[in-house]
Design a protein around this nucleic acid. Structure first.
Lengths: 333, 333
DNA sequence: TAGATTGGTGTTAACGTTAACATCTTTCCG
DNA sequence: CGGAAAGATGTTAACGTTAACACCAATCTA
């Protein structure tokens, strides 16, 4: 790999002049500039970002830490983040935390070493507090996405869990459902709690009590949905509808229901948070509170880069609204 | 951010001793080691990868360049690559090329600057040849994934397009289909060509001719599938089945068919390459030649790291077999 | 007991780039 | 026409880390 010095020698200038040509950081004679550029071309010279990062204390690298890149919600979010990052001249590293605090911490430490300029993170849960404090100690800018953390002051891009839940629950109730199960992710994740709160509120509003046996706490994975349904099926008095706190839970639930010979929506309605993108194109089936996941990524990168630039002062919070999409997985009874 | 020198001062040793503790590169007295580790802990010290990369000429960063992270095939592949990279102590940068040579080139240049240790790339097409030659010039190890490039000698992880196509086509023919359309991606992508070849072979084997009006070349995107179907619907003699060269094409095709009031499989059967993962869990619908996408990622990282380590000599090629999964989108006529 | 070995540690220079300052020439202005 | 300003370029040192070598003390070996 050729260096700036190789270019300098061949172009008969100092390294500094080459640096100036690369960065446009100061005037350079037109002729000299052309000569230097020609040599760079000829040598296929690409400046070493490591050396640059060392002196500039900036790497133009961002990191995106999410729970699972195979989840369409995060995939589309990642796409938004990547497009926006690229537009603004940043690259993106990504990692999966698998909803696991330990893995999350490992990643963050790696990122601290990498000297990324900032981090986008969907925290694995409230316990992420400590991990994020580490970032704050080290003054590494970050934005949390999708999940809030109580007591943590930082930039945030969140969905409106209460609104979405109200939309979903009102829909189910309008369809005549009264026994509605709630499949929750870990209660240490803000979205799980808020959606439970919304669930309770809407039931109360309609004079209904929460039946504790219909509230199942599990995890935001496919297997979580399956386990939750196994649990529900042991009840003598089955629910007529299931509200799953995210898309993976819903898919797991439907899969498990099907394996027990139950049909959706004929035997049970199933609705959830977050759409399935491609899947919904293929076969619009699931009734969902869809979130603008692409925008989550875009907005988060914008906040982050503002923060990095130092122009942002107070912490900002962006709340993106969900949209109820009624499809075939829910029906009137 | 504290440096190795801060640690050295506090621990009353030289920077070199700290470096040795970090890397375990030479003996250090047990007591000294403990003292240094304590100070590192206390200062929350994380070694600067930029400085390290500069002297070691290695960054432990890999890059994954694919056409679109929202495609489940690539998503799962990315997950496999990320898991394996992490296991081997590497981080992963990723980028979307959108099947676009120019964007691909930009990315590769960025990666050259970043001094990544290696690149995993699903080339946007045969024209990627030049882009990859740049990597070869610069002696940056890379592995191409999913798509071959004629005349390029390098490490490769590919699917078996011919086998998969044979499985799919034999299935359709066994179901009585004779007028089968083939929706192709760009013919500058090896998989498009091989699948066309397989398509032709199987038809010939059964004494059938290729009807050119049934072969539609478009692109590997959702919109490609939609456009292709618009084209097909203008024929007076419609096909009874559509074989789409990838999953996005199939989804686009089905979406468009539905918009024209045609049902799958009642009016037309649709089959394709690559599964839809989550989607297939929710609602097993599409008949596909599924490829082990997770393994594509894992194997590619293995090849790449072997290459980086210098232990690999000849270029290697791994071919992963597809698996025909028959579901409801195809039916006997 | 001299010489070699090994354990433990430090010093120096280098990796490739850029900020800060220095130098020289040319142009401008009153 | 003399001093200031602007234009063009170079020199030096620094960023944080590690390889290579050097050094010293303790231990081993013949």
């Amino acid at each position: 790999m050729s260096t700036i010095l190789d270019v300098a020698r061949l172009a008969n200038v100092s390294a500094m002049t080459v640096s100036r040509v690369i960065n446009g950081s100061a005037r350079v004679n037109e002729q000299t500039r052309l000569r230097v550029q020609e040599v760079m071309q000829q040598l296929q010279f690409y400046p070493n970002s490591n050396a640059r990062g060392l002196v500039l204390k900036e790497t133009r690298l961002l990191a995106l830490l999410i729970s699972d890149i195979t989840n369409p919600f995060f995939t589309t979010l990642a796409r938004g983040a990547e497009d926006e990052a690229k537009r603004l001249g940043y690259r993106l590293i990504f990692g999966n935390s698998d909803e696991n605090i330990g893995k999350e911490k490992e990643y963050l430490e790696m990122l601290l070493s990498t000297r990324v300029d900032g981090v986008l993170i969907a925290p694995s849960g409230d316990d992420s507090f400590e991990n994020l404090q580490l970032l704050q100690n080290k003054e590494l800018p970050f934005v949390i996405i999708d999940r809030d953390i109580p007591g943590l002051s930082c930039d945030k891009v969140l969905g409106d869990s209460l609104l979405g839940t109200h939309q979903i629950m009102e829909h189910l109730i309008a369809q005549g459902h009264r026994r509605i199960a709630y499949l929750s992710g870990s209660k240490h994740i803000s979205t799980s709690r808020l959606r439970l709160q919304g669930y309770t509120e809407v039931l109360a509003k309609h004079g209904l009590q929460v039946d504790p046996s219909l509230v199942v706490e599990t995890n935001y994975k496919l297997s979580g949905g399956q386990e939750a349904v196994q649990h529900l099926l042991q009840l003598t008095n089955l629910p007529t509808a299931i509200f799953a706190a995210n898309n993976f839970l819903a898919v797991g639930a439907i899969k498990e229901l099907r394996e027990h010979g139950l049909r959706v929506p004929d035997d049970l309605s199933v609705v959830c948070f977050d759409d399935l993108d491609l899947l919904s194109d293929l076969n619009p089936f699931l009734t969902v509170a869809a979130q603008p996941s692409y925008d989550f990524g875009v907005k988060a990168v914008e906040l982050l880069i503002d923060r990095i630039g130092g122009s942002a002062t107070d912490h900002r919070q962006i709340v993106l609204p969900p949209q109820l999409i009624i499809r075939r997985s829910s029906r009137s009874i």
